[in-house]
Design a binder for these strands. Structure first.
Lengths: 167, 167
DNA sequence: CTAAACTTTCAATAATTATTGAAAGTTTGT
DNA sequence: ACAAACTTTCAATAATTATTGAAAGTTTAG
């Protein structure tokens, strides 16, 4: 497999995986492209490489910046803006996990809390709803906490401890 | 909040979360409904509750069975089929994690392996592609392994160990 | 201040994905 | 073997989501 083929394969695979971490295809592809680029890229270059429109590129770059995984790079002497992505996979994972938690998981946990806290009127169906949503709430909260801890500051020692445990 | 409101809220919240674990809205809603039901439900009942068509219900029930989280229940004396979902959240999480890994994560890991194994032609861009995809490969593999271990057999002791570590 | 260089916005459109419903298929009781 | 009861399939359609491109907006150099 040659460079170009490998590059295309990476971008399209990683791009289609976007759904897994909750972003759209173009967004994921732009990030992929920057991730393997040896230098910051301009909007022009991104559009050309991915064959997407200017508007699309602009909007998705903004979203990537909102996620905190792409930053503007100002290159001296250049009028246009250049972009880079976080290159360290650990940092990348940290940002992604944090955003997903904030945007999607936390709100769901909140709803589960509300639903599982309704008054028990003694009927079987109410008891079941409370019991099941409470179980889901606890699971979601534990999973979210684990996610964040693993991926955060204590990253190093905890990951090492964990790897010892599971290997 | 009354039972009906809480129930609707749960179904719509959990349903919209479907994207997080890679399934569509109807599928997630059917699963939610079964999850808080005190008894197995027929297709008729599911259609009525969720206001979706027969065809839609049939297709999504099949997918849920493919995922291994819904099963047919044959009720003696009844002609029609009834359905139940896995009620234990731990088991549910196990099935979901396993399927996601198999369907989406493993294939991506495989591609990352391929891409990161191309011949190093000595150019900077090839080196970068190899380096970055290798880092991603290792991360994905570790994350996937952790996921599966946590959620699998060793569940109890490892979860307890882990909880001690992160609390 | 003005014009060129560049970026953003957003209504229109295209692409994708989900849903319907009716016909075809299957199973079961008599 | 037949017909009623039920389920599945799938082409048509609807709903949703992504993308375009041109006009409006912004910044900078001279």
């Amino acid at each position: 497999m040659e460079y170009q083929e490998a590059k295309d394969k990476f971008i399209s695979t990683w791009g289609s995986l976007g759904s897994l971490w909750g972003i759209n295809k173009a967004m994921a592809q732009i990030q992929s492209l920057l991730f393997i680029s040896t230098k910051p890229l301009s909007m022009e270059e991104i559009m050309d490489e991915l064959k997407i429109s200017r508007g699309n590129t602009s909007m998705n770059l903004r979203q990537l910046m909102d996620w905190g995984i792409v930053t503007k790079e100002l290159i001296p002497g250049e009028r246009k803006e250049f972009f880079t992505t976080e290159k360290d996979v650990q940092e990348l994972a940290r940002h992604i996990a944090k955003e997903r938690s904030r945007r999607e998981i936390k709100p769901v946990i909140k709803t589960l809390k509300e639903v599982s806290s309704i008054k028990d009127d003694g009927t079987e169906k109410t008891k079941e709803l409370i019991k099941q949503t409470k179980a889901l709430h606890d699971l979601a909260e534990t999973a979210d906490a684990m996610m964040n801890k693993i991926v955060n500051q204590e990253q190093n020692w905890i990951t090492k401890s964990l790897l010892k445990l599971i290997k």
